[in-house]
């Protein structure tokens, strides 16, 4: 299990990296934290001729307060995000989801940009991106694009990124006043990819949900928004019956795959359970904060 022959280019600036990506085209792959890509290389299941290592581009690792949002550089380590106070206070859903990614030594290297660009349907970040309506900033020698999360994840491990584009910045809207959130997931063991996970954030006004964001991972070819469930909560509130109905709707709305770890039916069922648990946690936390 050794990587195939390859070259590693280590640009120290974004401009340099974009030029290299443009120059080498399909032969090159960007290397972010490497926690998903390097295993594939070691199994020789991925065979780029060139890796463009983004780890020396210090400009891509930052967490900035942007007023109504937090701007996070794509090469910011998951561990940095989890430990960041601004994120904890203003984007608690992102923070909570981060703590559930794999294990600490993996989060030491893994980056938010790498995870989003990898678009593993069982990963936590894509679900958070959808729930929070995160915006993804991409760069290429051709210029900058801003892509909404809803338009970013296209299929299993497939995103709207063009081959010459890099994800550079993640715009995370701050949690609105009166909001409460939760990220819950279930995996075979702690740290494994989720069999099902639900990201939830509800903004309450006058003790009723005014905005409901629910997204799921692990239950389809991409993470997805649970729009029917959201509508139910928005209309009927967060009482036991509404939560039950929303969870049933969530389970009904997903189209999971069967694999070694869980059948499609089981995953669907878990989506319902995770939806319930996420909503219950949100409500419980809202009660504590209000």
């Amino acid at each position: 299990m050794k990587p195939p022959p390859l070259d590693i280019l280590s640009p120290s600036s974004l401009i340099e990296a974009l030029a290299l990506l443009s120059e080498h085209g399909d032969a090159a792959r960007p290397l972010a934290g490497g926690q998903s890509l390097v295993p594939l290389l070691n199994f020789r299941l991925s065979r780029p001729e060139i890796l463009i290592d983004l780890n020396r581009i210090s400009d891509l690792a930052f967490i900035k307060d942007g007023g109504d949002h937090i701007a996070i550089g794509a090469m910011t380590r998951e561990r940095t995000i989890e430990e960041n106070e601004l994120v904890r206070d203003q984007a608690p859903l992102l923070q909570e989801a981060t703590t559930q990614i794999a294990h600490l030594p993996i989060r030491s290297r893994g980056t938010i940009g790498g995870s989003l660009a990898n678009a593993d349907p069982a990963a936590e970040y894509p679900a958070v991106a959808l729930a929070l309506e995160i915006e993804l900033v991409t760069q290429s020698v051709r210029g900058e694009r801003r892509i909404k999360a809803a338009a970013f994840f296209e299929d299993v491990l497939t995103t709207a990124l063009e081959p010459d584009e890099l994800l550079t910045e993640i715009i995370v809207p701050k949690a609105p006043p009166g909001s409460s959130s939760a990220f819950v997931e279930i995996a075979r063991r702690h740290g494994d990819f989720a069999l099902a996970g639900v990201a939830a954030q509800i903004t309450f006004a006058n003790n009723a949900p005014a905005d409901v964001c629910l997204a799921v991972c692990g239950a389809g070819s991409t993470a997805s928004r649970l729009t029917t469930a959201e509508e139910i909560i928005l209309q009927d509130g967060v009482g036991v019956e509404a939560v039950k109905a929303a969870s049933a709707a969530a389970a009904a709305s997903v189209d999971p795959m069967s694999d070694l770890h869980a059948s499609a039916d089981y995953r669907r069922r878990l989506v319902g359970v995770m939806t319930t648990r996420a909503l219950e946690k949100v409500v419980q936390r809202a009660a504590v904060t209000s």
């Binding site: 199994f43 075979r188 063991r189 702690h190 494994d192 070694l260 770890h261």
Partner: peptide, 15 residues
């Protein structure tokens, strides 16, 4: 079907 530690699951400290 279980050719890696992603698929062959050993118990961990938290299990």
């Amino acid at each position: 079907m279980t050719g890696s530690f992603m698929d062959y699951l050993l118990p961990t400290a938290s299990d």
